[in-house]
Amino acid sequence: MLDDTDRRILRYMQAEPGAAASVLAERAGVTATTLSRRLDRLQDAGVLKGVRSVIHWPALGYEVEVSLRVTLDKTQPRAFDDFIAGARKVPEVIEIQTFLGSVDARLSVIARDMAHYQALYREELLTLPHIADIEALMQVARVKRQEALPL
Protein backbone atom coordinates (compact mmCIF):
# COMPACT_ATOMS: atom_id res chain seq x y z
CA MET A 1 0.00 0.00 0.00
CA LEU A 2 2.69 2.52 0.97
CA ASP A 3 5.71 3.03 -1.25
CA ASP A 4 9.07 4.53 -0.30
CA THR A 5 7.93 8.07 -1.17
CA ASP A 6 4.85 7.75 1.05
CA ARG A 7 7.01 6.49 3.92
CA ARG A 8 9.49 9.32 3.40
CA ILE A 9 6.68 11.89 3.48
CA LEU A 10 5.25 10.37 6.66
CA ARG A 11 8.69 10.26 8.33
CA TYR A 12 9.24 13.96 7.65
CA MET A 13 5.72 14.82 8.79
CA GLN A 14 6.30 12.98 12.08
CA ALA A 15 9.70 14.60 12.58
CA GLU A 16 8.41 18.13 11.99
CA PRO A 17 4.60 18.25 12.05
CA GLY A 18 4.45 22.04 11.75
CA ALA A 19 6.58 22.24 8.60
CA ALA A 20 5.10 24.11 5.66
CA ALA A 21 4.00 21.99 2.70
CA SER A 22 6.74 23.48 0.53
CA VAL A 23 9.40 22.48 3.07
CA LEU A 24 7.92 19.00 3.44
CA ALA A 25 7.82 18.54 -0.36
CA GLU A 26 11.44 19.64 -0.71
CA ARG A 27 12.66 17.34 2.08
CA ALA A 28 10.68 14.40 0.68
CA GLY A 29 12.05 15.05 -2.80
CA VAL A 30 8.69 15.64 -4.50
CA THR A 31 6.89 18.60 -6.00
CA ALA A 32 4.23 20.47 -4.01
CA THR A 33 1.57 19.06 -6.37
CA THR A 34 2.79 15.50 -5.87
CA LEU A 35 2.89 16.02 -2.11
CA SER A 36 -0.68 17.33 -2.09
CA ARG A 37 -1.91 14.42 -4.22
CA ARG A 38 -0.17 11.86 -2.01
CA LEU A 39 -1.43 13.44 1.21
CA ASP A 40 -4.99 13.39 -0.16
CA ARG A 41 -4.58 9.71 -1.10
CA LEU A 42 -3.18 8.88 2.36
CA GLN A 43 -6.13 10.64 3.99
CA ASP A 44 -8.65 8.89 1.72
CA ALA A 45 -7.02 5.54 2.57
CA GLY A 46 -7.33 6.28 6.31
CA VAL A 47 -3.55 6.34 6.87
CA LEU A 48 -3.60 10.02 7.84
CA LYS A 49 -6.35 10.81 10.32
CA GLY A 50 -5.56 14.51 10.45
CA VAL A 51 -3.16 17.00 11.93
CA ARG A 52 -3.47 17.91 15.59
CA SER A 53 -1.91 20.01 18.28
CA VAL A 54 -0.40 18.40 21.34
CA ILE A 55 -0.97 20.43 24.48
CA HIS A 56 1.43 20.15 27.40
CA TRP A 57 -1.11 19.77 30.25
CA PRO A 58 1.20 21.03 33.06
CA ALA A 59 1.55 24.32 31.19
CA LEU A 60 -2.20 24.76 31.73
CA GLY A 61 -2.00 23.91 35.42
CA TYR A 62 -2.72 20.17 35.35
CA GLU A 63 0.01 18.65 37.51
CA VAL A 64 -1.53 15.27 38.40
CA GLU A 65 -2.13 12.34 36.07
CA VAL A 66 -3.76 9.16 37.32
CA SER A 67 -4.52 5.90 35.56
CA LEU A 68 -7.64 4.17 36.85
CA ARG A 69 -8.08 0.47 36.22
CA VAL A 70 -11.76 -0.36 36.40
CA THR A 71 -13.57 -3.68 36.70
CA LEU A 72 -17.24 -3.48 35.83
CA ASP A 73 -20.23 -5.41 37.12
CA LYS A 74 -20.67 -7.52 34.02
CA THR A 75 -23.95 -8.97 35.28
CA GLN A 76 -25.44 -5.71 34.00
CA PRO A 77 -26.14 -5.98 30.25
CA ARG A 78 -25.27 -2.33 29.51
CA ALA A 79 -22.32 -2.08 31.90
CA PHE A 80 -19.76 -1.11 29.26
CA ASP A 81 -22.01 1.27 27.34
CA ASP A 82 -23.29 3.07 30.44
CA PHE A 83 -19.83 3.33 32.01
CA ILE A 84 -18.23 4.67 28.83
CA ALA A 85 -21.05 7.16 28.26
CA GLY A 86 -20.60 8.47 31.81
CA ALA A 87 -16.79 8.62 31.58
CA ARG A 88 -16.98 10.59 28.31
CA LYS A 89 -18.85 13.35 30.14
CA VAL A 90 -15.99 13.97 32.61
CA PRO A 91 -13.72 16.59 30.94
CA GLU A 92 -10.68 15.53 32.98
CA VAL A 93 -10.87 12.00 31.55
CA ILE A 94 -8.50 12.35 28.61
CA GLU A 95 -8.42 8.72 27.51
CA ILE A 96 -10.69 5.68 27.80
CA GLN A 97 -9.52 2.19 26.89
CA THR A 98 -11.43 -1.09 27.17
CA PHE A 99 -9.91 -4.54 27.61
CA LEU A 100 -10.67 -8.22 27.70
CA GLY A 101 -9.55 -9.79 30.97
CA SER A 102 -9.74 -9.00 34.66
CA VAL A 103 -9.58 -5.24 34.02
CA ASP A 104 -12.42 -3.98 31.83
CA ALA A 105 -11.40 -0.36 31.30
CA ARG A 106 -8.63 2.12 31.95
CA LEU A 107 -9.17 5.84 32.32
CA SER A 108 -6.42 8.44 32.10
CA VAL A 109 -7.40 11.34 34.32
CA ILE A 110 -5.73 14.73 34.79
CA ALA A 111 -6.19 17.13 37.68
CA ARG A 112 -4.72 20.44 38.77
CA ASP A 113 -3.50 19.05 42.09
CA MET A 114 -4.28 16.32 44.62
CA ALA A 115 -7.20 18.24 46.15
CA HIS A 116 -8.76 18.62 42.70
CA TYR A 117 -8.16 14.93 41.96
CA GLN A 118 -9.71 13.86 45.28
CA ALA A 119 -12.85 15.91 44.59
CA LEU A 120 -13.01 14.61 41.04
CA TYR A 121 -12.57 11.02 42.26
CA ARG A 122 -15.30 11.27 44.89
CA GLU A 123 -17.83 13.39 43.01
CA GLU A 124 -17.42 12.25 39.40
CA LEU A 125 -15.44 9.05 38.98
CA LEU A 126 -16.83 6.91 41.81
CA THR A 127 -20.35 7.78 40.67
CA LEU A 128 -19.82 6.27 37.21
CA PRO A 129 -22.24 3.38 36.68
CA HIS A 130 -21.55 -0.32 37.16
CA ILE A 131 -18.13 -0.10 38.83
CA ALA A 132 -17.33 -3.31 40.73
CA ASP A 133 -13.71 -2.40 41.52
CA ILE A 134 -11.39 0.49 40.83
CA GLU A 135 -7.64 0.85 41.29
CA ALA A 136 -5.82 4.16 41.01
CA LEU A 137 -2.24 4.25 39.75
CA MET A 138 -0.58 7.61 40.38
CA GLN A 139 1.83 8.56 37.63
CA VAL A 140 5.26 9.49 38.96
CA ALA A 141 7.07 9.98 35.65
CA ARG A 142 6.47 9.43 31.96
CA VAL A 143 9.57 7.58 30.83
CA LYS A 144 8.63 7.18 27.19
CA ARG A 145 5.79 8.44 25.06
CA GLN A 146 6.09 8.03 21.37
CA GLU A 147 3.36 8.54 18.86
CA ALA A 148 5.65 8.40 15.84
CA LEU A 149 5.73 5.10 14.02
CA PRO A 150 8.88 3.44 12.73
CA LEU A 151 8.54 4.06 8.99
Rank of each mutant, 00 (worst) to 15 (best):
Glu95Ala: 05
Ala32Val: 14
Val140Leu: 14
Gly101Cys: 10
Gln76Arg: 09
Leu72Glu: 11
Met138Asn: 10
Asp73Cys: 00
Arg41Pro: 13
Gly101Val: 11
Arg41Met: 10
Asp4His: 12
Ala79Asp: 00
Val23Pro: 15
Arg78Met: 15
Val109Gln: 00
Met1Gln: 12
Arg37His: 10
Gly46Ser: 04
Thr71Asn: 05
Thr98Glu: 02
Val90Ile: 14
Lys74Gln: 09
Glu95Trp: 03
Glu63Gln: 14
Phe99Ala: 03
Gly46Asp: 09
Asp81Asn: 04
Val66Met: 12
Tyr12Phe: 15
Glu135Lys: 14
Ala119Arg: 15
Arg8Ser: 03
Ile131Trp: 15
Glu95Tyr: 01
Ala141Lys: 14
Ser102Trp: 01
Thr34Ser: 15
Ile134Val: 04
Asp82Val: 08
Ile96Leu: 09
Ile9Thr: 13
Leu137Glu: 02
Val54Ala: 11
Leu24Gln: 08
Leu149Tyr: 03
Thr5Asp: 06
Glu26Lys: 12
Asp44Glu: 15
Arg8Gly: 00
Arg88Leu: 12
Arg88Ala: 01
His116Met: 08
Ser102Ala: 07
Ser102Arg: 07
Ile94Met: 02
Ala119Pro: 07
Leu120Arg: 13
Ser36Glu: 11
Ala111Glu: 04
Leu100Gly: 02
Tyr117Leu: 07
Tyr12Asn: 15
Leu42Asn: 11
Ala32Phe: 13
Leu60Met: 12
Arg78Ala: 13
Arg88Pro: 09
Arg78Trp: 00
